[in-house]
Amino acid sequence: MAARVNAAENDRLFGQRWGVDVAVPAATPLISLIEEASGAADTVALLRLSKAGVEVIETTITERSRASGRTLGEITLPAGTVVATVVRDGRPTVPGPEVRLLPGDELLIVSHESTEQEIHAAFR
């Protein structure tokens, strides 16, 4: 879970003890944090909706991904998981089973059952 910290002197209060994975300073643009996190790993949990039991996860297709060159219909997704959109060249598309995944594609995935690791494994 991410927490927005309005006052920098309070950031020490936001940590694992309170279920916070990352403390986000209010002054930092959210998009730059997502970009930074995305550069560190190919699969990143962007949002956890704990009450609904839903996670929103981003994964990027690389040249080494086994999903590269395959269609969405050819990929076995983990239980309770759907691909919400495929972003290619900065443009989101409605993903159908015929969409062929290419290196550089960013997928926004919604899951209510599977873990980030299981989703990563499906595309790596």
Results as ranks from 00 to 15, higher is better:
A45H: 01
E116D: 08
V99H: 10
V56W: 03
A37P: 00
V110G: 06
D89R: 06
E9W: 12
V86Y: 07
T85V: 13
A67D: 07
I61A: 07
G96H: 02
A121D: 15
L101M: 12
T62W: 02
I34T: 08
A23Q: 01
P92T: 12
E9H: 08
G15R: 04
A79D: 09
L33E: 03
A67R: 09
A121R: 14
Q117C: 06
N10W: 11
R17S: 00
E9M: 03
V82G: 00
Q16A: 03
P25S: 08
K51N: 04
A41R: 11
L101V: 08
E55L: 14
P95H: 09
E118S: 15
A67P: 04
S32N: 07
P97I: 12
A84N: 04
D89C: 00
A84T: 04
I75N: 04
G90S: 10
S38A: 12
P103H: 08
G96I: 14
T60M: 07
L77A: 01
A121N: 13
V22R: 06
T115Q: 09
S68L: 09
S68K: 09
T71H: 07
W18P: 00
P92I: 10
A40H: 00
E74L: 06
D42E: 11
S65A: 12
R100V: 15
L77M: 03
V110I: 15
A26D: 11
L107A: 05
I34L: 11
S114E: 06
I75W: 03
V24S: 01
T76Y: 01
T81F: 10
I57Y: 06
R66C: 02
V94S: 10
E58P: 00
V94Q: 13
S50N: 11
A37E: 04
P95A: 08
E36V: 01
R17E: 01
P92C: 13
A23V: 06
R12N: 03
E9K: 06
N6V: 11
V83W: 03
A37W: 05
T85F: 04
S68F: 08
S65N: 12
A45Y: 00
R17D: 00
S32M: 10
Q117E: 15
E58R: 14
A26L: 15
P25Q: 09
T71A: 14
V56Y: 05
I119Y: 14
E106V: 14
R17A: 03
Q117N: 12
V110T: 15
